[in-house]
Design a protein around this nucleic acid. Structure first.
Length: 346
DNA sequence: AAGCCGGGGAC
DNA sequence: GTCCCAGGCTT
């Protein structure tokens, strides 16, 4: 059995000798940029998040710069990244720091944790990377590495499991080199101890890894129960003239909050019944159909074009008029981007 | 505790 | 198709 000292030693040696992973935020200590990178990377692959990190940090050099930006401008930069409440919380926190904290990022773990959009993982990441404070990160990478190396059948997806892994991770943490250690274990998980086809021959724990020894690599970590896909039917009504579209901003707690779409209704199936909306007397009944599969729902998008509607009727809807050349100023869901591209608007 | 929130890359 | 990603918030 591996002692905590051995674990840390082997990990740091691997990090020094073999880890060549490089990312724009790696090794920096600006809490603002570290915070941005961590928010962007929540449930998001490094490859996917990197260009968003670059564009946001290029446009807003400090947290105060970001705090002064317009919502729509920032959401536009976030477009396509998903989990849009992260963007909402990010703006809230930037403005809180600018207005209430004189633009100074908090330095204590508890204060960092209290910021909107920051949970256990992100607080530990910022505290260790920016200030080298002794807090252990527990993300998907860490759970996978620890589960395999120590052969843990504990699930991470309940309160007891979270506590268990956080406790173990803290015990293993090299308290004097928390930044280096935390980065190393995540890098190991991302580049060697991968979810599928891990490269055990490059792993410093190969000879000690319980999962490897007992041939349980594919069983660990204990998987999260997969959620069943709910199918939803969204009917979009494209009101347009030569130069303009009518769009609206979504403001419910539903999917795509704060993004823009056409006027839309949701129905039980692919059919729109006249009772579904009295305004839509003359809907086009052969819409363009686009589908988007998300992790938790499948969305069928029906785009009804050439709708006959008067200005007076439009006034009853929640929409406003934009010029077609303004499309690039608004953040749209992927599904609408597909529609715009297919019809050569983008 | 369970549900909800996007989108995409690797296989 | 399946898995899962530098998770967190709401109910």
């Amino acid at each position: 059995m591996l002692s905590t000292q051995q674990f840390s030693l082997l990990l740091l040696k691997w990090n020094h000798d073999f880890n060549r992973r490089n990312m724009p935020w790696k090794g920096i200590n600006d809490p603002y940029k570290i915070w941005l990178s961590e928010i962007i990377l929540q449930q998001t692959r490094v490859d996917q998040g990197e260009k968003y990190y670059n564009s946001i940090t290029t446009k807003y050099l400090t947290v105060s710069d970001l705090s002064l930006a317009k919502d729509d401008e920032v959401y536009k930069l976030w477009q396509g990244l998903g989990y849009y409440n992260r963007c909402r919380n990010m703006l809230h926190t930037a403005r809180h720091i600018h207005q209430e904290l004189n633009g100074i990022f908090p330095k204590r773990y508890e204060d960092i944790l209290n910021l909107k959009g920051i949970g256990d993982y992100t607080a530990a990441a910022i505290a260790s990377f920016a200030y080298n404070l002794p807090y252990a990160v527990v993300d998907g990478n860490v759970v996978r590495v620890l589960s395999r190396v120590f052969g843990l059948n504990q699930s991470f997806y309940d309160a007891a499991g979270k506590k268990f892994f956080q406790s173990l991770a803290l015990e293993l943490l090299n308290k004097k080199k928390s930044a280096e250690y935390n980065q190393a274990i995540m890098d190991l998980g991302a580049t060697v101890c991968k979810p599928q086809l891990p490269e055990c021959n490059q792993c410093p724990f190969e000879k000690k890894c319980i999962a490897k020894i007992e041939n349980r690599i594919n069983e660990l970590p204990v998987k999260k129960e997969k959620l069943k896909l709910k199918v939803r039917h969204f009917h979009f009504f494209v009101f347009e003239d030569k130069t303009s579209f009518y769009i609206l901003k979504r403001t419910s707690k539903d999917i795509w909050n704060q993004l823009y779409t056409f006027y839309m209704i949701e129905t039980e199936n692919e059919k729109v019944k006249s009772k579904d909306n009295i305004i839509l007397k003359s809907i086009n009944n052969s819409p363009q159909v686009f589908q988007q599969v998300l992790s938790h729902q499948k969305i069928q998008g029906y785009f009804h074009i050439n709708n006959k509607i008067t200005e007076k009727e439009i006034a009853h809807l929640n929409v406003f008029k934009i010029n077609k050349y303004e499309l690039e100023a608004y953040a749209f869901p992927r599904l609408l981007i597909s529609f715009f591209q297919k019809n050569n608007y983008l």
